Amino acid sequence: MPRRRTPAPDWAAALADLVVPLECGGCGCPRQRWCQACAATLEGPLLRARTRADLPVPVWALARHAGPPARAVSAYKDRGRTDLAVPLAAALAVAVDGLRAAGELAEPDELPTVLVPAPASARARRRRGTDHVRGIVDALAADLAGSVPGGPVCVAPLLEVRGRVRDAAGLDAGARARNLAGRIRRRPEGTALRATPGAPATVGALLATRATVLLVDDVVTTGATAAACVGALRAGGLAVDGVLCVTAA
């Protein structure tokens, strides 16, 4: 298994803690960002999620969308706890290690790893003030690239939501699929990628390179979003190896 480097001190977060009292994102325990007990809830066996939407690739999640994992995801995406991106990404990185060890994914020295963040609508980004999945993906890429031994990693924000979409909360599988129909599309060829040495640095190079491609999202519910994303990527010529999420509802 790769060994993970100890993260550098986050001085900005430490300063913020002087203004807003720090509490665990999973249980509210004071003076801890993410306590050991809550971290342990993301360390169990990786779940193979069953989705109502038809997906041609496996969907993996760290935990069920309940308890501390659900509260952490909610705090991260809707209550401004952007500091939780790092521990959530660290748990996802360990999951990637496990999938590699199990032979589900190629080893990092065999193929570069390409991470595609599930897109958010412009309205959701404005409301939250951030692209929350992209934040997790950037932290995950840094963790994977910093492991020992490491491997080439590329963050590929290839997808976007075009047009108006409804809030998916409360929608069933069919309604979610109709809500997204034709609205998740590939971005133009000139889309900027973030790549470490050895990873494809342009969309053209990515399409011409064999790689391990993972769609990353925070929560999988019916699988409608994941299915639309995988379909758009495949239609654009990019094979996807799996979908990796923090929680499965």
Rank of each mutant, 00 (worst) to 15 (best):
C24A: 08
L140M: 14
L140W: 07
T6E: 13
L180I: 11
L46I: 12
A66G: 07
P197A: 14
R166S: 12
P9C: 03
I184R: 11
A63G: 03
V153Y: 05
A66N: 10
A89S: 14
L111K: 08
D97G: 15
S147P: 14
A235K: 03
A211G: 13
I136Q: 10
W11S: 05
A106W: 11
T209S: 15
A39I: 00
V230K: 02
C24L: 04
D143F: 08
A39S: 09
P7H: 02
S147A: 15
A12Y: 00
A173M: 08
L215A: 11
A199C: 06
V133Q: 10
C245E: 00
G231Y: 00
L47V: 06
R5S: 15
L206F: 03
A106R: 13
L158M: 01
D97T: 12
P21E: 10
A169I: 08
G103L: 13
T247D: 01
A226V: 04
H132G: 14
T222E: 12
R134E: 15
C29D: 15
R52P: 00
L233T: 07
G146L: 13
R3S: 12
L62F: 01
A14T: 06
P108Y: 10
R48N: 05
G146T: 13
T196W: 04
A53K: 00
